[in-house]
Design a protein around this nucleic acid. Structure first.
Lengths: 367, 367
DNA sequence: CTGAAAGCGCTAACAT
DNA sequence: ATGTTAGCGCTTTCAG
């Protein structure tokens, strides 16, 4: 029976399955047709529509007694403004979208994303702006989002995890929709973006290793076609160069950001470059894999070999609390995205703006 | 230095920090004022507005040549319909919301949620309906969502992880907005919901243990104020009763769905009821904790004690591939939510509908 | 300070 | 088959 399956309620027959015996519950009356309108409020309050509009928009210049009367009418009718009408009449949608373009759905659960979502939500919680998360996986969904955004349902768009070849940012930005990217697609990203200082962070990590007297420092890179990986490799090289240490060819091994690839890369390094006494991994996940390989090979960490990983996901605390990492300030990155977006919505500028957040080294046992 | 922090780019000074030296990039012209309107399209195509409307809505009864002409005009102008106007003119918003009311933000990253989000997204991907995820943590956000929904920005709302005391479902449903809940708040939930068969699943798990000849079966429960936990406890009791096995008081220990609480509960069980030869945990997470406690105590699993957990999050595969679980069909649950919502949007009914999905036992090594 | 009136861009019902 | 017209509910001048 191992690995087999048994219907959970086969012996009970008590519950309805889809489409078969749905239980139908209490019957209740509902009223849909005709939420009260501003006009009805005006009538009840005995004022003109303009006055009601002023009241619900907190506009100045309404006698206090009238205001009160209107508010009473609003409460009595349970009036809620029709947002479509409001938007159509010229005001904004009072909503922004945070888009995840991640075909690989597992990413969704990553701490990286939840952190960003959380901080963006926080930054918006004080405002009148509703945050809308949307998923874009297929081209159909891409198209639908563009029509949604261009259709005026949101006043601005933030995009996370955009792949280098994704045209979505341009489709949005080219129509004049305030758009902010999290991370660059390439070195000359034009659309407004917020990014972490990947070059500087990598440089700081490697400099730190050099500072402890180590010289034979290797790096495990990310996919070469990802800009973020390029930056981290560049940081490694710059640090080595500045220190006057020649970075041997054999000290650079390619990974793909996964723990597995980190493990393999480290195993290869141990094999072909046993002189290594330090490693900079382009992701914390790979760093964890590398630590595993080192320990498996009987190397002492950090005494024999020190490891630092770039903190893409605040993973380290869950897997290896001893791992030194380069931390990206996700909280601030989220806040900055919101700030840039709101500013752009406030007064559209003709220029793209780019903000790069500093990173910081979080020292722990392994380096 | 251990545990200390170092600014990543302190030695570089190359990057701009927020608000200090933001890089300002390429300047580009943007046009915002006045997207082309349907009227302009009509003019360019030399037809009436009604015809254009028919074309963009794929309505029948338009001569093929005219249709083509209109489409050409649309392409030439880069016309995109104004959604606010469309909604106002009486049609729907063509959007639905999937709401997470989870004050404890960590939950967001759980596989349970990403699975639901994924399956709901899948179910919607074929339609014209845009999925909007929204977060509701504070009362302010709750209020904002209600105004958003009542304001006509979405045609329906799905709610996940609703706490027993949350008034949000009623606030929405009472105004006649199609609303579907994932999970019940209590035994007499009125609002339309989709749920897993928690009672039946628990019963099946315990029956399975009984079927292997075990008699001293304990249960680790969830928080007693959560309906889902009550149901799973009820299933345990029913199975024991049906088998004519007396479930001793001391065999029921309370947990809180966390792995830690599972560990503690199991340790307590080992102490006070060493006769135990089977355990049903109300969540897979607690089951994992329980397994840890058992192994630590030197009990062999499943030979001495068999463990089954209820699969809230498809966690088992990540932590203990040997753990037998009661699986909830998350994919189907998501699809059903969408189906019910769309049906309700199609033709509002006066009745609430309730669907309870079967669960299935996924047998693995530990039971 | 407040009422009246002119749209916002679209759909749908009604003519033609 | 297609043009015309009347709103949808709100914001916003513009008069009073």
């Amino acid at each position: 029976m191992r690995g087999g399956r048994v219907a959970g309620t086969a012996d009970t027959g008590m519950t309805g399955a889809v489409g078969s015996s749905d239980l139908v519950g209490v019957v209740m009356l509902r009223r849909r047709p005709g939420s009260p309108t501003l006009e009805e409020v005006a009538a009840l309050a005995g004022v003109g529509r303009g006055t009601v509009s002023r009241v619900i928009n907190n506009a100045a210049g309404v006698k206090d007694t009238t205001r009160r009367a209107v508010q009473r009418a609003i409460a009595e009718l349970g009036y809620v403004p029709n947002l479509a009408a409001r938007t159509l009449a010229g005001r904004r949608a009072d909503a922004v979208a945070l888009v995840m373009t991640e075909p690989d759905w597992r990413q969704f659960g990553e701490p990286f994303f939840s952190e960003i979502v959380r901080s963006v939500g926080d930054a918006l919680t004080e405002t009148e702006v509703q945050l809308l998360l949307t998923l874009v996986r297929t081209d159909a969904e891409r198209q639908r989002l563009v029509e949604y955004a261009r259709g005026g349902r949101v006043d601005g768009v933030m995009l996370m995890s955009v792949h280098a070849t994704d045209p979505l940012p341009d489709m949005l930005a080219d129509v004049g929709l305030p758009t902010v990217l999290l991370g660059r697609r390439s070195g000359d990203e034009s659309v407004t973006y917020v990014d972490a200082d990947n070059v500087g962070g990598a440089r700081a990590a490697v400099s730190h290793l050099l500072g402890t007297g180590r010289r034979a420092i290797a790096t495990i890179t990310g996919p070469p076609d990802m800009y973020v990986a390029q930056c981290r490799l560049r940081g490694y090289r710059e640090a080595m160069e500045r220190a006057g240490v020649e970075a041997r060819e054999s000290w650079t091994v390619q990974g793909d950001f996964s723990a597995d690839s980190g493990h393999r890369a480290m195993a290869e390094l141990i094999e072909r470059a046993p002189e290594i006494d330090g490693v900079f991994a382009a992701s914390d996940t790979m760093a964890v894999g590398a630590l595993g390989a080192l320990r498996a090979a009987g190397r002492r960490v950090p005494d024999d070999v020190a490891v630092i990983g770039f903190d893409d996901f605040p993973l380290a605390q869950h897997t290896d609390p001893q791992l030194t990492t380069v931390r990206q300030p996700l909280e601030e990155i989220g806040h900055t995205m919101v700030r840039l977006l709101l500013e752009e919505m406030e007064e559209p500028s003709a220029a793209w703006r780019h903000v790069i957040h500093r990173t910081e080294l979080v020292l722990r046992g392994s380096a």
